[in-house]
């Protein structure tokens, strides 16, 4: 069963004197009980993709394509219809705690709010549940921490409070944007544990992350984004052993454990992206064909956008 299906999605920002093609023809799906990790270059369109699914984007955006959730196209829904889905059916853990938490509201009350609205429980029991969540995430002492304001939390605590808030309502699909950013190994274990539990209950996860070991632990499949496109969708085991796309190979080679070697050349512009394959100016395997845009090729059930696999 496919819970989420994205078809040929384009998201363009129109600024004063340019258009930013942040998402440029993306298709993928997430199945029931599956965790799909979306990894890739910084600035390649991962967060924008996530925010488009929940329609959390500013006015100056042009969106084309289809986003099917439970069979209906989210892009056609009214704001009211969407409110029924946002937070309740699909939850969102945003990338930036600083801009996502209200500085003048106690953390306990903020984290409790989605539960009050969507699970229809009263404030007092919701805050009690928040205390339990904070305890689970090692934010101690929880009875005291629920009454604190965001600035009284350390960076990693804010991050975990956001994860608690996003996952508290038992939604069908959770989209989490960098949920482990700035969190140490020991605390990361609680997040992994939580997401494993979520998966066991047949709920689905779309994990946007730069944390490759985290993706390896949790994901069933890996989708790789580069310059607004998905260039590879691959089974997790295969991906970390031998990824398909040249960008993926180069990315894995710049892990600290493999010597901190960056990919040569500059990241592409989304205003004037390279012609043909967008990775070709930086690619070791470049040939004349790469000036033409490659389609997705299927190899043993995995997908890759590269002429090497024609």
């Amino acid at each position: 069963m496919w819970v989420l299906v994205v078809r040929d999605l384009h998201v363009h920002f129109v600024l004063e004197n340019m258009t930013v093609k942040a998402v440029d023809g993306v298709s993928f799906h997430v199945s029931e009980g599956e965790a799909l990790a979306l990894i890739g270059e910084s600035g390649s369109g991962k967060s924008v993709l996530g925010m488009t699914i929940l329609r959390l984007l500013p006015e100056n955006v042009r969106v084309n394509g289809k986003i099917l959730f439970n069979g209906s196209n989210l892009l056609d829904l009214s704001e009211e219809g969407l409110r029924e889905i946002r937070g309740k059916e699909i939850a969102w853990v945003p990338q930036n705690p600083a801009t996502s938490l209200n500085p003048v509201m106690k953390v306990g009350i903020q984290v409790a709010e989605p539960m009050e609205i969507h699970l229809r429980i009263d404030r007092k029991s919701a805050v009690q549940r928040v205390a339990n969540l904070l305890k689970f995430f090692d934010i101690n002492p929880p009875e005291k921490r629920v009454n604190e304001y965001p600035h009284q939390y350390s960076g990693g605590m804010k991050q975990r409070a956001l994860v608690a808030m996003g996952t508290s309502t038992k939604p069908k699909l959770i989209i989490a944007d960098e949920p482990t950013k700035g969190i140490d190994m020991t605390k990361k274990v609680s997040i992994v544990e939580l997401f494993r539990k979520i998966k066991k209950n047949e709920l689905s996860l779309l994990l946007i992350t730069h944390d490759l070991p985290f993706a390896e632990k949790l994901a069933d499949r890996i989708a790789v984004m580069y310059c607004g496109q998905i260039v590879e969708v691959c089974n997790v085991k295969k991906f970390f052993k031998s990824p398909l796309h040249p960008y993926s190979k180069a990315l894995l080679n710049s892990l600290p454990s493999r010597g901190l070697k960056p990919i040569k050349g500059n990241p592409p512009s989304m205003v004037n992206p390279p012609k043909g394959c967008k990775f070709h100016p930086r690619c070791e395997y470049m040939s004349g064909r790469c000036l033409e845009e490659p389609q997705m090729f299927e190899i043993d059930g995995n997908l890759v956008r590269c002429w090497l696999y024609d």
């Binding site: 700035g182 600290p256 960056p262």
Partner: peptide, 14 residues
């Protein structure tokens, strides 16, 4: 303070 927490590993390396 966590200067590369939001970068992919290649950009982190550079």
């Amino acid at each position: 303070d966590e200067p590369t927490s939001m970068l992919d590993v290649s950009v982190q390396a550079s």
